[in-house]
């Protein structure tokens, strides 16, 4: 008993304690139109399959390329996406947003599927280009946020975690069967992109 208790990392009780410190409003009324707060921001990128697959694809491609690409692409995406999001929030129009988002799934998925290895800057430009569309879509969909800062924190962390899940998947590249799994994942992502482009999904 004593031994098993010693194995519990000391951070766990700290985290549990912090959960109790959260006021009740942290999770309340997020489904009733109140956009403010961390949870609303966190959930926002997770509500669209087209967004999810593209963000996972960024991490996946980065891990597949390896080296600096593994962190460069997931760094470029949220920063450029924030610029797109700012444009969306401010109401600056951007044509072809939905098409751009669907194309991002197709292009990024195909890059993974065909194991494309362009120079890093080319990969960064491709990822950054599509990040603008994703950011703009998110930004323009947002009504007046009750708490922009906690909303943005949740939004960015959620996006980052999607990249991280792609990177985690991409780390399977070490094994032959993993490469097949990753490239199959790329095909699936591209297929979903096609589905959104032609309104099948």
């Amino acid at each position: 008993m004593t031994t098993s208790l010693k194995r519990i990392p000391w951070q766990i009780p700290c985290l549990v304690l912090l959960v109790f410190l959260m006021p009740s409003t942290a999770s309340a009324h997020t489904e009733t139109g109140n956009v403010g707060g961390f949870l609303s921001g966190f959930k926002h990128p997770l509500t669209g399959l087209d967004h999810i697959v593209a963000m996972v694809a960024v991490g996946l491609w980065g891990a597949f390329l390896g080296g600096r690409a593994m962190w460069t692409l997931p760094v470029v995406f949220p920063v450029v996406m924030a610029f797109g999001g700012a444009a969306g929030v401010l109401g600056i129009p951007l044509p072809g947003v939905e098409t751009g988002i669907a194309l991002s799934g197709i292009i990024l998925g195909l890059m993974v599927a065909f194991a494309a290895r362009p120079p890093l800057w080319v990969a960064a430009v491709i990822v950054g280009f599509f990040a603008i569309f994703h950011g703009h879509a998110h930004g323009s969909e947002l009504p007046e946020a009750a708490n922009p800062l906690t909303y943005a924190v949740g939004f960015v962390i959620s996006t980052g975690l999607l990249h991280l899940s792609g990177i985690a998947f991409g780390l399977l590249v070490k094994w032959p069967w993993g490469r097949i799994a990753i490239r199959t994942g790329g095909v699936a992502i591209a297929a979903i992109g096609f589905g959104f482009l032609f309104k099948i999904i």
Partner: peptide, 13 residues
């Protein structure tokens, strides 16, 4: 980079 993104979004708001 996350801090940059968060700050940009909040400034836009």
């Amino acid at each position: 980079s996350w801090i940059i993104a968060i700050s940009l979004l909040v400034l836009a708001f």
